[in-house]
């Protein structure tokens, strides 16, 4: 990969060709707000908060930095008035949707948005799609997806019933930026209420501690090869 030089906010910055602009900014310590970007997932570009201005000389264009591959000589502005103004408007849209979510309120404050001029809702989910992307890209279980479209869009298990392909790994809950996806555990079971699933937990044959949902272990057994006999019967401690 070839090294290139781009200009961000008037400063020359070295980068690798094809690298996403947001990563370059992060490395330089330039603050780019985002609600849907995660390093381990493919860029999705839906929250649009990370927009920056791409200076083309006599005209400029707004682009999202999370999925913009940089090329030699490009010039960007991350804090122009236009960027600040438009980020605020988008934040207002998001805040109107999730008016009671602490993470959203905090980011809105950072961007200088105290309240939204639009009718507010209290939606915990911001539709960033991280749960769905984690489930398909990282876990490869493809258990959940979006349902409907437009303003009716929501995250959902198939048919709004039990997510039959869910293995209960909890990645969706772990990655959810607004803590909307709950995961509950008691002595023998794990529940993800949003997908209508409850799993029986496998226990360590030696110490009796919970290891993981039985279904997840079955899922792993199919994929993991060349592991010693009984590897999945024991917890990490006793292995």
């Amino acid at each position: 990969m070839s090294k290139i030089t781009i200009t961000i906010d008037g400063e020359k910055v070295e980068a690798t060709a094809g690298e996403m602009l947001m990563d370059v900014c992060r490395r330089k310590g330039i603050f780019i707000p985002t609600l849907c970007d995660h390093k381990d997932l493919m860029p999705y570009g839906v929250c649009r908060i990370c927009i920056v201005e791409w200076d083309r000389g006599d005209w400029s264009k707004m682009i999202t930095s999370c999925n913009f591959p940089v090329k030699e000589g490009q010039v960007f502005r991350t804090n122009s008035e236009k960027v600040i103004r438009e980020r605020k408007m988008i934040m207002e849209f998001t805040l109107a949707r999730s008016s009671k979510t602490p993470e959203i309120i905090e980011l809105a404050k950072i961007l200088g948005v105290e309240s939204s001029r639009f009718p507010t809702q209290d939606e915990g989910c911001i539709l960033c799609g991280m749960c769905i992307r984690a489930c398909s890209e990282v876990v490869e279980a493809n258990a959940i997806g979006f349902a409907q479209r437009g303003s009716h869009r929501k995250i959902s298990s198939p048919f709004y019933h039990e997510a039959t392909d869910c293995i209960g790994c909890g990645s969706c809950s772990y990655i959810c930026p607004t803590k909307y996806i709950e995961m509950k555990e008691d002595a023998d079971t794990r529940t993800l209420p949003i997908w209508n699933v409850t799993f029986e937990m496998a226990k360590c044959k030696k110490c009796g501690q919970k290891i993981a949902p039985k279904k997840q272990i079955e899922f792993l057994k199919k994929r993991a090869k060349n592991l010693p006999e009984g590897w999945f019967d024991l917890c990490q401690n006793c292995r």
């Binding site: 995660h38 381990d40 984690a134 990282v138 876990v139 790994c169 909890g170 990645s171 772990y174 990655i175 555990e185 794990r190 919970k210 290891i211 993981a212 997840q216 792993l220 990490q236």
Partner: peptide
Amino acid sequence: SNFSVYASRL
């Protein structure tokens, strides 16, 4: 406690 397998990748 048991996010063990996939969360580590995230």
